[in-house]
Design a protein around this nucleic acid. Structure first.
Lengths: 337, 337
DNA sequence: TTGTACGCGTTATCAC
DNA sequence: GTGATAACGCGTACAA
């Protein structure tokens, strides 16, 4: 309700003096007036308009994060990483669900640009051969021209710095783990078709199989990133024997779906077949799923940190790859017989 | 980069005219100039400053939501409900994790007030006998005085409209379901101590037991809202036979923890013991957990809707209670023997 | 150490 | 139909 002028008037000082006190400026102020101003501000319940502040400083302390769906734990962990950094720095996190739609991403980026966000983080992966990609790239460029720091958490050609995990290498690592356990015929349940993330994970799987001279016994099956997809894919595998030695799903949730399908069919895991996933989300812990941990929290946190630091001058690297880690648990074991 | 003045200048018109065109005002404008302005704006990549706009209109199109932890699916579903409504209305969602700390809530509310948010939604439950409650209430009042719409998704005395579910009644409903299956000795694994939400759920359980003349065989055990808490509590139950007829956990995640503890101990569910939870989150579907569905998405969506509507005059009800629904699944069954 | 005055980008009021 | 101009609330040179 009360503005700086009102505080100043009530304290019997000029706006500049009040401003200097309230912003904690280094400008010298007598202890008397400082105390007076602070007291009055407190009494009037003064709330500095971040809007006006941003208007004059040409950049707000707002940081946007674009996720596919915040209900997906993959993204909520990222969002948490972002928010922990932003709020600790006095920034505010703006969240938007884009449901993997590039046009929605463009829209939301535009909106956040309208608010003169300090930066925007693209958390989701793009589509392979996305017809809207150029349009997105253009929107990104415009935003950058206006001073926004854009960051992506996946490899996609939108012309901005990237903080990511090497998901191909991660897929390679779990696959290698399965092979080292003696498994040869390994089925890969793919992610949603057309997503860059899906392709990377599959490529990692195939690369590892190929390097182990097992290209022949690698099988890729259509799937998705959710429980149902994993469940369905596993059901199909069960329906067409022989069962593979192991199943690797493109992410944990699908792996859990597959796991349950196997258990429902009374197939022993890891006795008869091993199962592994990717991401190491909470659900993987719950069911004791072997997986590979991706630095999701750190990706969000680091991207946010970059944006904040960039505002104060530091220049950011174009590509940062954070490391993953294999997490062997109880759903994988040595090959029997 | 380019402001309204620049667009106006480049189009050879006044700022007012440019503004009228770009805001889609009803003010009459010649088709010629309109087209010209639009073309120029497009070419210059004009992005209207939502900041300046909010400054003059004294309210932004920002809506804040305060959650305990966005990684907790309970809250991410709420956040999704909020964001679906806000973004469809051209608003932006601000997200903040407060880790159940009232002082943090106050801080974040303050920050969102600084941005002249249209409203702020408190998603988390408060603490019983919270010493900071008065301070929060005061902060809420100040925010309201400034025009912010404050909403709470739980019953807590902070002086704002509430959109919630009757969690006590929900707990009553699952308990009743267990009783109707013939169970008598029912153990309740409580939520985190000191939370209002925990108390409500326990009260619902106790009320139902009492109404069924089973107050004597009701047992409450300390627990929490997470997997580990449920797991630990169940382990303790297992260590001290006899086992109860059924276990009700304060939420789904704890119930899943308990479920796994039982399975690890080779105790058949629901053969030897029934297990139920509350919330009906995704994990409950996965494991076939009997639970009660709370309208979390709807709560978030409706609260957001209220805020947006209130900005355009409609007055909001003080208390709205959305309905829950019992979801019987495979972890509960009739009492044996 | 304190005060004055301008500009940030819009919208809205009023005049032409 | 169109165009000045005054707010909105703040930071900040510049002056005193």
């Amino acid at each position: 309700m009360s503005s700086l002028v009102e505080v100043a008037r009530a304290a019997g000082v000029s706006v500049s003096t009040a401003s200097r006190v309230l912003t904690g400026s280094s400008h010298p102020i007598s202890a008397k007036t400082r105390a007076k101003v602070i007291a009055v501000a407190e009494e009037l319940g003064y709330s500095p308009s971040a809007l006006a502040r941003a208007l004059v400083s040409r950049s707000s302390r707002l940081i946007g994060v674009l996720v596919s769906d915040i209900v997906n734990p993959y993204f909520s962990v990222i969002a948490r990483g972002v928010d922990d950094v932003t709020s600790r720095a006095g920034y505010v996190t703006m969240l938007s669900n884009v449901d993997r739609r590039t046009t929605t991403e463009i829209n939301r980026l535009q909106t956040m640009r309208d608010y003169r966000a300090a930066g925007v983080i693209f958390a989701g992966s793009g589509h392979v051969d996305d017809p809207h990609a150029p349009e997105l790239a253009k929107a990104v460029r415009q935003a950058q021209d206006q001073g926004l720091q854009i960051m992506s958490l996946t490899m996609r050609d939108i012309g901005c710095p990237v903080v990511t995990a090497d998901s191909q290498a991660a897929a390679y690592a779990v696959t290698d783990h399965l092979i080292s356990l003696g498994h040869r015929r390994i089925a890969f349940i793919e992610g949603p078709s057309g997503m860059i993330a899906s392709r990377q994970r599959r490529d990692g799987f195939l690369a590892c199989m190929s390097d182990a001279d097992l290209a022949e016994s690698a099988r890729c099956h259509p799937g998705g990133f959710d429980y149902e997809a994993g469940h369905t894919a596993a059901m199909r595998l069960i329906a067409h024997p022989p069962l593979p030695d192991a199943i690797l799903a493109a992410n944990d949730e699908a792996a859990v779906g597959a796991l349950h399908a196997l258990r429902q069919a009374r197939i022993d895991v890891p006795g008869q077949i091993s199962v592994a996933g990717m991401d190491d989300l909470r659900v993987a812990q719950f069911v004791g799923l072997t997986t590979v941990s991706l630095p999701l929290y750190e990706m969000g946190a680091m991207a946010a940190r970059r944006i904040i630091d960039a505002s104060s001058g530091t220049d950011s690297t174009a590509l940062t790859v954070l490391s993953h880690r294999l997490i062997p648990r109880e759903t994988t074991g040595p090959r029997q017989g």
